[in-house]
Design a protein around this nucleic acid. Structure first.
Lengths: 214, 214
DNA sequence: TTGTATTTGTGAACGCCGTTCAGTATCATG
DNA sequence: CATGATACTGAACGGCGTTCACAAATACAA
């Protein structure tokens, strides 16, 4: 005898759940790669299955449907954005400078992950999701965490008097809308004869800050 | 004898091309209705065919593919936007007031035609289209005509000194980006807990004008 | 009028897609 | 070894955009 029975059971169970997790991760990795390279349309359950050498059906043992799979991939990206905002906060800048840097980080982050950005913000949300959200589950939403950070930054700047006073929620939402404007358009409207990107973002940022009364 | 031969030929030809046009229009009507109600995904060649009681193949005698069909539907809508902007111009307002009204008209127009707006501005453009545009055919683009109007309005306001001076093209593009921000987001991010729409648009407009130095 | 060429329309098929379901293989355990 | 659970799969369903060979209708020339 080398091991008590119940410990063996536990180990076996542990291995099996670990293996399950590993396969889940393999699916996510394959999907992520396809997704980043070829966008939402470029990901198909069958393509993922081919890549990981499992049957398409297997994927449904780990994800309810394609939308859930995509959701998992995209909310990871939000975590990264939140982290980047955290890094900026850790720099010990003035509230205004921190806000400015955060806004810019949002734009750049979107442009770095265009396919994720499209899925998260540019595609029409399925009606079911809308209803689920209205039924009161914003709090888990990973994107909402980033928005909360933005709102706090704006509230702080108002308290310090470095931007114009006003309703925090209105200001936060309209600021977000402005960020979405340039980020979304530069990603999706690729055939528009935009001016040089960096310069355009710079002048846009100036206007955003100006509209904040900074 | 009732009619010279060559005239008869002409008439017959006229009827046939007319009939062809009529069928084309029937296709467009069916597609438009489906599209407005169920969005891009809701339109399928087969559904259109069912509706007009022709085979799916017939549709390909009138449109190269689904994208071209959609393009036809959407560019009509731009014509309507342009017309609305023309109506505003005919009101004889001050340049600044006219600009303000035009910007608002853009937002409202987008919100009134959400599915068209998504196709035109929110979906990633196929690579082929991007290349075609870069190969030099912006001029025919019906959306570009609207943008030109915006640019003229901004240039006029600058000349009159009612908004801050600056590069006309930069200002025009960033203004358009701001408009797209609120329009696109309100359409696609339906589950976000937005503030009351009218008030949000109002406060957004105030910020846009402020950022123009008005 | 009859044959011919062109236009107009179609059914069947191709190769995709997301998803489901019945069934098989694997495997820890009684 | 038998049992019951778990992991996995092939085949299929109904959809999609699109193509192609073929049929029907039509206009016109001989």
């Amino acid at each position: 005898m080398t091991m008590p029975e119940n410990e063996r059971s536990q180990r076996i169970l542990a291995r099996r759940t670990r293996e399950k997790q590993e396969l889940r991760q393999k699916i996510l990795n394959a999907a992520t790669e396809l997704f980043a390279r070829e966008g939402y349309e470029g990901v198909s359950i069958r393509k993922i299955a081919d890549r990981i050498e499992y049957s398409p059906t297997t994927i449904y043992l780990h994800f309810k449907d394609k939308a859930e799979l995509m959701g998992n991939i995209c909310s990871d990206v939000f975590g990264a954005l939140r982290q980047r905002m955290g890094e900026i906060a850790a720099l010990g800048l003035t509230p205004l400078e921190q806000l400015r840097r955060s806004l810019r980080a949002y734009i750049e982050f979107g442009l770095e992950h265009p396919n994720h950005y499209i899925v998260l913000f540019c595609l029409p949300e399925p009606v079911e999701l809308v209803q689920a959200m209205e039924a009161g589950g914003y709090s888990q939403d990973p994107g909402m965490a980033c928005f909360d950070l933005l709102r706090e930054g704006i509230a702080l700047c108002m308290r310090e008097g470095v931007i114009a006073e006003g309703d925090v929620e209105f200001t936060s939402q309209s600021t977000f809308l402005m960020l979405h404007g340039i980020t979304g358009a530069l990603i999706t409207m690729r055939s528009f004869p935009w001016l040089e990107r960096e310069a355009l973002i710079n002048s846009y940022m100036v206007r955003v800050m100006k509209s904040l009364g900074a």
